[in-house]
Design a protein around this nucleic acid. Structure first.
Length: 303
DNA sequence: GGCACACGTCTTGACGAGGG
DNA sequence: CCCTCGTCAAGACGTGTGCC
């Protein structure tokens, strides 16, 4: 089978150097598992015990490289196996993590109950738009493109051929967000996620109703248009400072969400992480490197 | 061949002056 | 009070290169 073509089909813009690295790595892995040089098919990746055994001898950094090829190859071929390896990759990322968060950012890593408190204050103040936005960010890890969401009825959404904007699609039952214009869109393309939280859905519908047919979910009152990323960032900063005394941003809110996640076990946590990464349009590795931090505790070390 | 970091690029954030 | 705008700094991100 033509490994090179398969890689290229998944990653059309891959550079020659990386491609070379990918092929040599996968070749070596194949040899180690099957004893043969010629790669017939990807079935050898199913022999996970052997694969793991081979990888276990490598350093964390090198393992990262191998997971890169493996996941690329499995991406369109075997979803289940892909997920298994993805878990391993994430575990490896954790083991390999070394970045540390700055102190100012640590301060922003507040407890979810404080965030909730801020939310209810804003809601009480009648700042519905701000409330909806901040609540939405608590549930879904969007970036500043959230300010540009357009409200579109499901029927109309289906008619849009060239989906280039960011939409909040409203059906009679379901609602979902479809984003096409955001920081990493060239890599992740069109991303869709359902709005599933029942209580929030209700609030959202009521809010939309109050907009009287307006198509911008969030409005810059001065310009009368959707909010640009900069305007969104500015507004979030301003309003959170006012109601929580901390300037929060889409990323600091996401960090709060991740650090407050309570699951039963590592699997739940990993699943959550993968789903959040998918929605945000971020590789789990990046999440681990930049977003996951222990909550500030009065550690003896820094006393 | 193994390994991990650095680079380039783009986005976001902080800050403060200033305007309606 | 709410927001804009300009500037500069920092953060986020993925790729692939260069060292051992």
């Amino acid at each position: 089978m033509n490994i090179v073509e398969l890689i290229k089909s998944v990653k059309p813009t891959i550079s020659d150097g990386t491609l070379k690295g990918y092929t040599t790595n996968i070749g070596k892995l194949h040899k180690a598992v099957t004893g043969k040089s010629e790669i017939q098919d990807l079935d050898f990746l199913k022999q996970k015990v052997k694969v793991d055994e081979y990888l276990s001898k490598l350093s964390k950094g090198t393992k990262t490289n191998y997971y890169g090829v493996i996941l690329t190859l499995l991406k369109t071929k075997d979803e289940e196996l892909y997920k298994l390896y993805e878990k391993d990759k994430i575990a490896n990322n954790f083991a390999n993590k070394k970045k540390v968060m700055s102190d100012t950012n640590k301060e922003k890593l507040i407890d979810m109950k404080d965030y909730d408190q801020m939310l209810s204050k804003i809601k009480k103040a009648g700042l519905t738009q701000d409330y909806i936005m901040l609540r939405m960010l608590q549930l879904y890890p969007y970036r500043n493109e959230i300010g540009s969401l357009k409200i579109v009825p499901l029927k109309e959404f289906k008619k849009i051929k060239d989906k280039t904007d960011n939409y909040l699609v409203v059906g009679s039952k379901k609602m979902f967000v479809n984003r096409n214009k955001y920081k990493t869109d060239k890599i992740y393309g069109s991303i869709t996620n359902d709005i599933t939280d029942k209580k929030f859905k209700k609030e959202l519908r009521a809010y939309i109703k109050s907009l009287d047919g307006r198509t911008e979910l969030f409005l810059n009152k001065l310009t009368g248009k959707s909010m640009t990323p900069a305007e969104t960032s500015n507004r979030l900063s301003y309003i959170t400072k006012k109601y929580s005394d901390l300037k929060l941003s889409t990323s600091s809110i996401f960090k709060i969400v991740l650090s407050n996640f309570k699951g039963d076990d590592m699997k739940e946590y990993t699943d959550f992480l993968v789903e959040m990464g998918r929605i945000r349009g971020t590789d789990p590795k990046t999440l681990i490197d930049y977003y996951i931090h222990k909550k500030k505790d009065s550690n003896v070390d820094d006393a």
